[in-house]
Every structure is written in structure tokens, then in C-alpha cells.
């Protein structure tokens, strides 16, 4: 399938670039598709490319030697992953798996270097994106270090209800999380997530509606997670 300029324009990496510049960059972009649960990248393998999610959702995660999974982030349409490996030349820092059917655009490390040389103003976008990612990981370290599991889960539910829980989004754009995945995101065991969900339901913050977790008291979740406003 042909690479679409309009889709490239919606990627934060390429914000502010002219159509002519995007046409030139397009020559370096390849497309890749994956089905739910397809492995896209393996941790510690040699880095091949930076990827942009065109549609669908992927998860970026680390696995311990005991097989415990820690999800680092969920990447949705317009966002990128494996940037670090492309820029520092190291191996893939984490594994990536498709949570839904996905379409990705990719640019190899060599091609990205060429693009940055030819379009230096793109570097400003890259710095902004990498800074945002650092901020995300600082927040993750804070959560894992200082917050209780139920509070971390409250924050996760709040983020997902706000970021993804809109009916106007297509089904494939709205990630569905298993309790195992929630556990891997908040750094605990699956069983603890089950208990924490029950606790949140008993406190009146959420309602379990079969396959849906319905946020019924956003303010309470905000208080628990230390998030203000909204």
C-alpha cells in the first residue's frame, strides 16, 4: 500500500514540514502490518527502525528473567516507538507487541540519519517527542516508587478513560486491557489488580459492567491518583 502524505502530516515527527519535504521523506518510509498479539520488536535485538502507529495500538514492555512483564507505555495512532534505539545506535530497549490489528510506518536508522541531515528543522520535533517520553518515564518511576497499587490503578483507569474511552474513536483505536496487562502497567500481580478493582468498585469509583470498567466517580479517582483538575 502506498504511503499517504496526509497520514505523515498527522505524525508529530513531521509537524511543520512542507508537502514537498514530506514527499521527499516519503521515499524512505516503509509500511508494515500486524495482527493482535503479533510480536513487532524483540528487546535487545539489533535496532532496525523507528516506527509510527498509523492505526491500532501497540504495547511496549520489558520482561524479567522470571517472566514478569512491565508495560512501559501503550502507543496509539500518531505516536512513535523505538526512537531511542535509532538515535543512540543501541539494541531495541524493549519488546513491542500489537494489541489490536495495526498498520505501522517505519524509517530505518540509516534513512532517519539521512532525513535529519536534509531536514534539520525536524530535529526540533524529535527533541520535543523524546522530552515527552522522558517525562512519561519520570512519572512512571514516581508511580512505581511512591504510590500504592490501588492508587496507581486509579491513575491508569483515569488516563485510559480520558485518553481512549470515547465512543467516537474507532473500535481498533480503543485498547482493551486484560487484568494481566493492567498489572504489568502498574507493576503488580494480576491477582492484586482483581482485588484492587473490587476495592474501587466498593468505594463507588468504578462499576464493573461485564467487559467494561465504567468510571462513575472521576473526582474520586483523581483524588486517589493525585491528579488535579479535569
Amino acid at each position: 500500500m502506498a504511503i499517504e502524505i496526509d497520514l505523515l502530516k498527522s505524525v508529530p515527527y513531521f509537524l511543520g514540514l512542507s508537502t514537498a519535504e514530506l514527499e521527499a521523506i516519503k521515499q524512505h518510509v516503509f509500511e508494515q502490518s500486524a495482527q493482535r498479539n503479533d510480536m513487532i520488536l524483540l528487546e535487545e535485538e539489533a535496532s532496525q527502525a523507528v516506527y509510527f502507529v498509523v492505526s491500532g495500538v501497540v504495547k511496549v514492555f520489558k520482561t524479567s528473567v522470571e517472566g514478569k512483564e512491565q508495560i512501559l507505555c501503550i502507543v496509539k495512532a500518531g505516536e512513535s516507538f523505538n526512537d531511542i534505539a535509532v538515535f543512540d545506535g543501541g539494541p531495541n530497549p524493549a519488546s513491542v507487541i500489537a494489541m489490536t490489528p495495526v498498520v505501522l510506518y517505519g524509517i530505518t536508522k540509516t534513512d532517519m540519519e539521512t532525513i535529519l541531515r536534509k531536514h534539520p528543522n525536524l530535529a526540533t520535533n524529535v527533541i520535543k517527542i523524546l522530552s515527552k517520553k522522558v517525562r512519561h518515564f519520570v512519572s512512571l518511576v514516581e508511580d512505581l516508587s511512591f504510590r500504592h497499587v490501588t492508587d496507581r490503578l486509579a491513575k491508569l483507569l483515569l488516563e485510559y478513560a480520558t485518553d481512549h474511552g470515547r465512543i467516537s474513536e474507532g473500535e481498533g483505536q480503543r485498547p482493551r486491557l486484560t487484568q494481566q496487562e493492567m498489572a504489568a502497567m502498574v507493576g503488580t500481580a494480576r491477582e492484586v489488580v482483581g482485588r484492587s478493582l473490587k476495592a474501587l468498585e466498593e468505594e463507588g469509583a468504578i462499576r464493573m459492567d461485564r467487559h467494561r470498567i465504567v468510571v462513575v466517580n472521576k473526582k474520586l479517582l483523581q483524588e486517589m491518583s493525585g491528579v488535579t483538575g479535569g
Binding site: 483507569l157 478513560a161 481512549h164 486484560t178 467487559h211 467494561r212 470498567i213 468510571v215
Partner: peptide, 11 residues
């Protein structure tokens, strides 16, 4: 068994 996470208004 994946869950959708939604706010009550959107339902």
C-alpha cells in the same frame, strides 16, 4: 478477557 475502560457519560 480484555476490558474497555470508559467514563459513564460516553456510555
Amino acid at each position: 478477557c480484555p476490558f474497555e475502560i470508559v467514563i459513564e457519560d460516553s456510555i
